[in-house]
Write a protein that binds this DNA or RNA. Structure first.
Lengths: 232, 232
DNA sequence: GCATCCAATAATGTATACGTTAATCGATGC
DNA sequence: GCATCGATTAACGTATACATTATTGGATGC
């Protein structure tokens, strides 16, 4: 056996500028460094990320399709801002897709090994609330739980769709994190879903999860209304 | 009041090359002119559509995110081919999203005027089967019904997701159209869903639709297995 | 003083040029 | 005769140049 390419690049082809621009832009948006409603020019991003406009434009196209920004012809892009109506849409989608994902996963009768990432996330959520609450840590564990659930369901399309709307709502979730009551109930529900999956109880897993999502949506809607938030 | 731009271009800014390339490429793929598995070069498309590589690349990115093709670095693109497993994924997604769309629509208590496009499609499906069956016409009406249902549900994200997977499955549906029994039952189910929506019976609408989708998925799966189809 | 027009400018949309990578094919050495 | 190496080539990935369009500010005419 011989090498078909130089050792230096084996398995690690040079990363494309397009990909790094995409990743960094997305990170900036999710981290609220480019806040919702912000107008950005191609040349700004190109200069900031040390690339030419070509890869920046390709990254814009991808991010637009993911709903994180909007290309305004002749005017660069505008970072998407979520209205209360957008939040309703997102939660309706999640209430449809996520219970399905849970159902598919539970139906496969996975063992504890397969569910290790979920167990870890559950533990982390509980740990984040024991003693002095650490909301950032809790949110990270919550996110990990849901994304891993999507990944484990055995349907790549379903998983991609869940992650896409989850990303769209990321900033809103972070923003409202400190405005909502301590997520004790939410943490319990995660554990209950996990138990139902392990028990192979498809219907129970689905219904708990659906209720969990519905409660979360209502909670968020209440907060948004109470604070009169229009865009986030 | 005066004109802010020449009359000739009022409301109709010059269409971007990117958009026409995207639309024509997508049409080609859905029409099976670029068959699944086909490898295409940027320069081929650029030459065929009389554009430069830049807009072609942007169209590729959009179509990749829609799942209609895959960008193979340094090797152009490959038109996506659906495996039986992909079909399973698509039907799982549709079985999750479409009943939700129906539920949302029915809950709004729409009147006959609002549902006109659905009524028209139902009529067209029945007409296509009365007398000498016209499968092409039936399929077009079926597609119109489902896409309009998605549009009417009041959730743009949900609608976009439904249309996306529907597009992915378009060729497969066309291909199996003549292999399946006459869609008499399917046509009746559409009418039943429509009646349930008009009656404002949310739960009945959802359950009929879910059953409809499930039966359709099983039917397709059976056909795929029976004919030993691996990619389409 | 106000509206209109024009010119300058800035940013996008598209084309093209350049550099890099990977594959192919022939030559060479064992 | 086979494997390996190298050169050629073809295609992509990126940068840049050019064309197009929309906006803005100032000048002009009424």
């Amino acid at each position: 056996m011989y090498l078909s390419q130089p050792l230096a690049t084996m398995g690690s082809r040079a990363p494309r500028s397009t990909d790094t621009v995409y990743a960094r832009l997305k990170q900036h948006i999710l981290d609220n460094r480019y806040p919702p409603g912000a107008q950005i020019l191609e040349s700004e991003v190109a200069a900031a990320l040390n690339a030419s406009r070509t890869p920046v434009r390709e990254a814009f196209v991808r991010l637009q399709q993911e709903g994180l920004l909007e290309i305004v012809p002749r005017h660069g892009v505008r970072i998407s801002a979520l209205s209360p109506d957008d939040m309703r849409e997102i939660y309706e989608v999640l209430m449809s897709l996520e219970p399905t994902a849970v159902e598919l996963l539970a139906a496969r009768r996975p063992d504890r090994t397969e569910l290790e990432s979920l167990i870890t996330s559950c533990d982390a959520m509980e740990a984040a609330l024991a003693g002095e609450p650490d909301l950032q840590a809790w949110a990270a564990a919550d996110e990990a739980f849901h994304l891993n659930l999507a990944r484990l369901c055995g349907n790549k399309r379903l998983a991609a769709m869940i992650m896409q709307v989850w990303d769209q709502a990321h900033r809103a979730r972070m923003f409202t994190l400190s405005l909502r009551p301590l997520p004790v109930r939410s943490t319990e529900e995660h554990r209950a879903v996990l138990d139902a999956i392990l028990a192979g109880d498809v219907e129970r897993a689905r219904s708990i999860y659906h209720a969990h999502r519905k409660r979360g949506g209502n909670e968020l809607t209440t907060i948004i209304e109470k604070h009169g938030i229009q865009r986030l």
